[in-house]
Design a protein around this nucleic acid. Structure first.
Lengths: 336, 336
DNA sequence: TAATAAAATTGAATCGATTAAATTTATTAA
DNA sequence: TTAATAAATTTAATCGATTCAATTTTATTA
């Protein structure tokens, strides 16, 4: 192993000087710099990141905690985050909690600032979870995609309320009246806010009905089951607002298996615009989240906090608007 | 920050003893152990992983290098790897190269054993790439999913040859004769071996024809384009063997857009069995890779190598059989 | 009870870089 | 030429845990 000592010896200078050179501390004369660079190259020296971390008291790792790596939404979020991080010399440690609050807790408890100097977290689905450990860590944190009552920190999130409101209004404008909502987990603010958006649009158009509300969670399975119940209960349903695309996919399966056609018999709209939504048959109309951008934004904010460059001292919520993507899963009724 | 010194002082013992306690070195008397544990608990001490890594000369990080995190195959592979790693106290640093050999190279060059003590890599698509840096690192490496001529190390991989052979034989048994192959990138062994499997089955049945071969890469787009060309060139095609599910998805789109039905007009079979394949319409018949298991197997092998427990000194290839999953995208012709 | 062996504990060196005070060398002004 | 100042360089302490030789304590045996 080539160390800074070897370089110093070869270049005929002290370790302090080598350190100054590799850290771009501009106090070293040009001629010494040249000697040092030459030695570094000849020895193929690479500084030991661990040793550096120890003496600097910080690491170049940040943790990304996601609830479900199988929902393509999250790999794309990760891509947005890591693409940004890597340009700045940071590495991402990725933890997939599989929506298991316990697993999340174990990881967070084991976590300390020695391992990572920042965290980007999309909390697992869990009501009233205690995130005190996280705040006690005194590590910069950015929350993405899912808010939590018990975690109060900088947040980058899509405008769930408005997105849902827009989606439902689109359904209404297409002439639909009986509009079911298949919610995600009631333990997530995400699902709650999408519900509120649905409710607002329904109430404004005098279409609101308690019976239209189904709570489940953000899985294909849950979407399938909820839709199955809907079809058992209702003789006639105009349209379905699925709280995310994954739920929509499950619901579409249930609809098809019940011998109904999309959108001729039932229209459906989703939320997220994951990559596969455009490939479904019919391609899914949905609210697109700029998820890659949300990821890189979260990373940028986190690095600013880590490097102490954050302009604002108070906590910020960055709320990004989604966009209605019209495809073929919603029918336009005559006269609409 | 609470250090081992603080614990030693509080417990009234030396740092060496505290170190022995937290490292389970069974030389400490029960009574001292109790004192130390008490102090650890009271101070909420957590060992500094960085300092430990420095003095032990190894880290608890391993790198996972994947070519495309957007193909759901890889998140599932990552899940298999990390679930295993986490039980052993290792963390995964995930690098997505987006099939960009240059990006992969930059990362690998920046890599050193201080950062990670092992690597699991599914190389980016690149012909004749030079992996010498990797072997010079002297870090344990396990290759998954994609082999490379220039990387020779323990490998966990599905039996691509047999899988393709089985898939094509299934098509043949269903009565298909004109069977196109949509290959992935010619720069990957994966695509090459699947091609060889196709070819063997075709030749054995006297169905082989050079014109049936299309080379592209492992993307939806490529699948779409190749299929489009096929449909322009051939009046009649019985079936398509797509080199992976992603290609199949693109091809299915092209087929549909050309006004043809699956499987009535054209049958199609994929490879991988990614999560979404069963959700397509029609659900895709494909060769299932036990990807989660491949991931945990790779992780297990890697940890054995890292911890020096590897029984065998020579390089091993673990070849796992895929499984034909019959769904609805292949038609059975009369008399077959 | 002394001698010896075994067990438990200590403490200083170490890992490889950073950092800041101390020292040396170069530059400028008088 | 010398003193004062600025620039460049060195040196040693430091980060927090591990490790092992040295020492102390405890247990065993004669």
């Amino acid at each position: 192993m080539i160390t800074i000592k070897d370089v110093a010896k070869k270049a005929g200078v002290s370790v302090g000087t080598v350190s100054n050179v590799i850290n771009n501390i501009d106090i070293v004369s040009e001629s010494t710099k040249r000697k040092v660079f030459k030695a570094i190259k000849e020895l193929n020296f690479k500084p030991n990141i661990i040793a550096r971390s120890l003496s600097k008291g910080k690491t170049d790792n940040i943790a990304i905690i996601v609830p479900e790596i199988n929902n393509p939404f999250f790999p794309e979020l990760i891509r947005g985050i890591t693409d940004f991080l890597e340009t700045k010399g940071y590495y991402a440690i990725i933890i997939n909690t599989d929506n298991n609050a316990e697993k999340e807790e174990i990881f967070i408890n084991g976590l300390n600032s020695f391992l990572v100097s920042g965290i980007i977290i999309a909390p697992a689905d869990s009501k009233g979870k205690d995130f005190r450990v996280l705040s006690e860590l005194k590590i910069p944190i950015v929350i993405v995609d899912r808010e939590s009552d018990n975690l109060n920190d900088d947040t980058v999130i899509v405008n769930n309320h408005k997105g849902a409101y827009d989606a439902v209004n689109y359904l209404i404008n297409c002439g639909h009246k009986i509009i079911i909502i298949l919610c995600g987990s009631n333990h997530t603010k995400t699902a709650q806010n999408r519900y509120i958006g649905w409710r607002k649009a329904m109430e404004e158009n005098n279409l609101f009905n308690d019976d239209y509300i189904y709570w489940g969670d953000f899985t294909i399975d849950s979407g399938y089951k909820m839709m199955d119940e809907v079809l058992k209960k209702f003789k006639k349903v105009d349209a379905v607002f699925a709280s995310n695309d994954i739920i929509a996919i499950g619901a579409m399966q249930a609809i098809r298996e019940n011998g109904l056609r999309i959108p001729e018999d039932i229209s459906i709209i989703g939320f997220d615009d994951i990559y596969f939504s455009k490939l479904l048959s019919p391609p899914l109309t949905t609210i697109r989240q700029p998820v890659y951008e949300i990821g890189s934004m979260a990373a940028e904010i986190l690095l600013k906090k880590i490097e102490g460059k954050s302009e604002l001292k108070n906590i910020c919520r960055y709320v990004i608007d989604g966009e209605l993507i019209i495809r073929d899963s919603v029918a336009k009724k005559a006269g609409s």
